[in-house]
Design a protein around this nucleic acid. Sequence first.
DNA 1: GCAGTCGTCATTTTT
DNA 2: TGACGACTGC
Length: 744
Amino acid sequence: MIDVNIPTTDLDRLVGGLNSAQRDAVMAPPEHRLVLAGAGSGKTRVLTHRVAWLIAAEQVSPHSILAVTFTNKAASEMRTRIERLLALPTRSMWVGTFHGIAHRILRLHWQEASLPQNFQILDADDQLRLIKRVLRGLNLPEDRWPARSACAFVNASKEEGRRAKDLQDRGDFNHRQYVRIYTAYESACSAAGLVDFGELLLRVYELCRDNGDLRDHYRRRFRHILVDEFQDTNTLQYAWLRLLVGETGALFAVGDDDQSVYSWRGARIEHMMRAERDFPGAQISRLEQNYRSTAIILEAANGLIERNSGRLGKRLWTDGDRGDPIQLYAAFSETDEAEFVCDRIRHHRDQGGRCIDMAVLYRSNAQSRVLEEALVRHQLPYRIHGGLRFFERLEVKDALAYMRLLASRDDDIGFERAVNTPARGIGATTMERLRPLAREAGHSLWYTARAVVVGGGGALGRSTGAVRGFLEFVDALDEATKERSLADRMEAVIASAGLREHYRKEKTEQAETRLENLDELVSACQAFEVEYGRGVHFAEPGAGDEMNAMNPLTAFLAQAALEAGDQQADSGSDCVQLMTLHAAKGLEFPVVFLVGMENGLFPNGRAVNEGNLEEERRLCYVGLTRARQQLYLSHAETRRIHGSEQVGAPSPFLREIPSDCMTEVRPRVGILRPARGFSAKTSPRFREEAVDGYRLGQTVRHARFGEGTILAFDGAGSGARAEVHFRDAGTKWLLLSIAKLQPQ
DNA sequence: GCAGTCGTCATTTTT
DNA sequence: TGACGACTGC
């Protein structure tokens, strides 16, 4: 089995550092294999070493390998690590996201897929815009037929592999309307040569399903298909994998059913269970040794996740330290919780810790604001993950709209955006005349507009001149810059379309950032061209003809849609990381704060109503297992949600975590509490150290409630009250004159 | 085409 | 509470 050309020492090096379970998976015979990889068990390691092993030991040509991930980050990391392991170029190996791979196949076989050669990709935002347009075209009021729901319907249908025609004449009135919308949306996309994310996958699936020659071609080619985060595959992705693997391919899928948290995006955890049946002879490996967290954190995570039913079953262990107990803090309010977090961050930093090693995780984005405010108050640098990414920014999309028109005049989304940005007298009225003409003729806006202008412009009335001006402008711009570099063209667009001027005049505080982003966009073009010239994206010596098929402009636009870019430039600096639990999946931090652990918030009330408590629990499991050394959990007794104060019970997950993993943090002496009768924001905080002979933090005994700790004081004289946290009875406000608390 | 106002909505978002 | 979209009036 071992090739004589490859020194044994190199193979040793490939598997030498692996534990036995990892080695078992990496060195497995080239047949179907399912690797259940627990959090922090070296999943990526196994995947990359497996690829290297196939090439080095099994003599598999990189040409026969397809490795699929969900994120661009994972894909590029995988390629980098494989290349480092092998010290060989692996350009003929396909490594990419499901969408990236699908896109690549469609560029190669656009004719077979019945797409125009210069088809363009719609991102989520573009898709929603187009759906809105379709709704207006169908005269469906948006309050009755929300664009978001329609969009969700279309996406869910595509994820299930269903076309509008497959859904016809079934279901209730609502459903039929949605099918109508779906149908109209499909024709709008095809008239404009547009493909959304779901469509990329669906087209490729249909192509492989219906085109035997092509299917056989790819089956012959990709003998080894490796999949990362297998638990996140949706119905369509799974079906496509089955199709591609066929009778001859070998599937190597890595995943963790306990970390499946994207069911609302179509991911089906059942695929993990079904794969054993659908891929005959599939062997299962379990990676349970964890290299990330302390034993105590793993114990908590194991204890929690065991409450879920229907798991494939796994128990994480480590031969590392037990570590420090998880600290649980019961905050008075969300502000107090944020103060606690900041206090601990400062503590860690004072001990020599770096901010970048600390992360605050929450269930919903809305929770970040209070945390941000506190971090600012404490002058702690932070970075929020989430929000708009570079290629999703308004000004960037404006500039790209022109580029899209240069790439494809039929791109309606580009047309809609560019036509009146900056304003050039082609407003809503004009567009409302143009759109139905285009729809009825089944043509793009550009085509229709040109036909009207050439024909005398009667249908457009007074704005005919403006429309003609726009068409001529775009054509002239194209003609003038055709032979120039991508960056030059972008610069020409920004300058001559008047975008730079438009944003220069804008008097908001963001104006400057916007101008900077436009400049950044030109640089991005430059960088892209260098890479593209080197063939980093598509070149494949001897086999890649899609490079010729796709010009740099189209390639750039596709990349902008498929990899919307980083969120912020300052990612390198020493900042506390703030993000949702979903965004934290796949990451790790020495110190983790998991905040907002209240019933209704986490687990999220809506999710529980929909019967997804187990997925919430998995999300909690994901959160716990992000921590390497120290984990803090907190919940607030009251929290402002949508403007009104809500009392929240601690999350049931807190009870499910074995209690010997946790210690309750005693409230600090001098805890901050807003004065009653004043809003937390405007009133000065006051700090009562002692009242009526009692002091904060003091242990007292109550006749009925037992032993407790004084957390706060309020009022004076006969109205003086204390808040006491009782070990067994919870936290209560008691009048000192009545409660007769016994100092202990 | 714009600024101002009102009403509605509020989980997560790899591509 | 506050963000966003639709509507209104110049």
